[in-house]
């Protein structure tokens, strides 16, 4: 443990650690919101690679776990605000499911800040940029995640 903390500290101090993030964005709101961030030329860190899915409701827990297992330092799922889902209620199912994934991950010792859900509408380009910027900022001090269940 101590060693791992040391490694993380070093990474943190030298400012080299760039967290790898997978962002699952729903097509109608969050992906459109990220498009708006682009159109508005907002600047945010390049750490998050987006995967556009039809709806946050289509994000299976296994996607999230798999992203961590493939070495993601953080995973984001973003959908339409409650009540605004293009598919009426997909995001409500997502919210419940993701809540559970999050609690499970925290239980096995994954820092709460590594996994996030956000509501970003098509009009919220600024919010999208902020969500990514905040996520990167919060992930940096945590250092690399390593794979699930692996020693750090």
């Amino acid at each position: 443990m101590a060693e791992a903390v040391e490694v993380r500290k070093v990474a943190q101090e030298s400012g080299e650690f760039e967290p790898k993030i997978v962002a699952f964005l729903c097509k109608w709101c969050s992906s459109a919101g990220s498009d708006l961030a682009g159109v508005s030329r907002l600047q945010y860190p390049s750490n998050a690679v987006p995967i556009t899915v039809p709806c946050s409701g289509s994000v299976s827990p296994i996607y999230i776990l798999s992203a961590f297992n493939k070495g993601a330092d953080g995973v984001l799922v973003s959908g339409c605000h409650p009540g605004d889902c293009h598919y009426l209620k997909g995001n409500f199912f997502a919210r419940r499911r993701i809540y559970l994934v999050q609690k499970l991950l925290q239980f096995i010792g994954v820092e709460p800040n590594r996994f996030r859900m956000s509501w970003v509408s098509a009009a919220e380009g600024t919010k999208y940029a902020q969500v990514i910027a905040d996520f990167v900022k919060d992930l940096k001090p945590l250092g690399p995640h390593g794979k699930l269940g692996a020693k750090r």
Binding site: C55, G57, S60, Y87, A94, R97
Partner: peptide
């Protein structure tokens, strides 16, 4: 079907 995939996210049997 509108292709939202909520079913796919829900089905535990893929």
């Amino acid at each position: 079907c509108e292709g939202c995939g909520t079913c796919a996210g829900t089905c535990v049997r893929a």
